[in-house]
Design a protein around this nucleic acid. Structure first.
Length: 351
DNA sequence: AAATCGTGGAC
DNA sequence: TGTCCAAGATT
């Protein structure tokens, strides 16, 4: 089988049955960029609404570059992997200030943008500019592994390299954007991780895994580690309708987002924790209005959180330290916060 | 090379 | 219930 005809059925099938997705209505590289970054490690169903909202707020690279970071994060709120938003914001400024607002139009130029790796650069350059670069995402790795019988683990650089080089050879015989999207669509709808629907697969007659009944053992993936437990306490301090938030720094989880003053602890405290006392004025006897517990599961850790709701006069540490932002309790929803905060605020009827 | 970074849906 | 993992990038 020659490369020119290997994917012919898949391409034909894609032309007929491709899903209608909002980012497929445009070939504006900016919009393709936005969609690809939103879709990193994110399912189509989850990303669609964020894509529409993001473009409503930031319809072009100039509006994104001009926006304050906190507004970009507010639009991104709840989606996760927040460095994506910060990197996009940074790259938008770079495009406007250094490239006169012209989106880079080749692979190397696109690849230089922060938050754009090999996959995203290939996706943008193929879809927006018809350039022959194979976009190797999780779908493509799985499809290629089964189709060609590749036993190299697909979650390691060697496996990705092998697949990328092979598909870069093949993609030149096809329409690049169509080729990449057709394979991703196949992986998303037919050649799924579990229970692939081989009966409906347009690549069935060419598939190594199907011929050898190896769908369950391909691709080879290295086992993941179990999440680590972590305990964290939050202080929701109220005083005369005011409260205080803290903007997380550039390192670690939830970067750039706001949250109540927080501390990582070994064990959750049954009474208001000692560390909270420095946030309260000594002369004031604060009232404990209650606490709420949450278990927040992430890929790599399980967070046991306890929110303490205290009423009392804040200490000078809180009032004079620029680390903390004072705001009206009713205006919390204007700040970008992580999902754990959203849960608490929702359960407290604050949003 | 291996860790880290979120959230949610499917099974 | 727990496990997997998604249109990955960065360090």
């Amino acid at each position: 089988m020659e490369f020119q005809s290997l994917f012919a059925k898949l391409i034909a099938d894609y032309r007929i049955n491709a899903r209608f997705l909002p980012w497929r209505t445009s070939r504006d590289p900016y919009q393709i960029w936005v969609s690809e970054v939103i879709l990193q490690q994110t399912k189509v169903l989850q990303g669609q609404d964020y894509f529409m909202t993001f473009l409503r707020y930031f319809p072009d690279v100039f509006s994104l570059a001009d926006a304050p970071e906190d507004q970009v994060l507010k639009v991104w709120e709840g989606l996760g992997y927040y460095s994506r938003a910060i990197n996009m914001h940074h790259s938008a400024k770079f495009i406007v200030e250094q490239l006169k607002g012209r989106f880079p139009d080749d692979f190397d130029g696109i690849r230089k943008l922060k938050g754009v790796g090999d996959y995203t650069a290939a996706a943008i350059s193929s879809i927006a500019f018809d350039l022959p670069h194979a976009a190797v995402d999780g779908n493509v790795k799985r499809v290629a592994s089964r189709l060609f019988g590749i036993r190299e683990p697909i979650d390691k650089p060697a496996g990705v390299k092998q697949i990328t080089e092979l598909l870069n050879e093949i993609i030149q015989y096809y329409s690049p954007g169509e080729f990449n999207q057709a394979i991703m669509e196949l992986g998303a709808l037919i050649c799924t991780p579990k229970n692939p629907d081989c009966r409906r697969c347009p690549m069935q007659e060419h598939c190594f895994a199907f011929a050898n009944n190896l769908q369950k053992s391909l691709p080879v993936v290295t086992p993941k580690k179990k999440p680590v437990n972590m305990h964290i306490e939050f202080l929701f301090l109220e005083s005369k309708g005011k409260t205080w938030l803290h903007k997380r720094d550039k390192n670690g989880i939830w970067k750039g987002l706001f949250e109540f003053p927080a501390k990582i602890v070994n064990h959750l405290s049954e009474t208001p924790p000692v560390w909270m006392m420095e946030f309260l004025d000594n002369s004031d006897v604060s009232k404990v209005l209650g606490h709420r517990d949450y278990v927040h599961k992430l890929t790599h850790r399980t967070i046991f959180a306890r929110f303490w709701h205290l009423s009392g006069k804040p200490s000078n540490i809180v009032k004079q330290n620029q680390t903390y932002t004072e705001l009206k309790t009713t205006e919390i929803s204007g700040f970008p916060v992580h999902r754990l905060m959203l849960k608490y605020l929702g359960d407290n009827r604050m949003i």
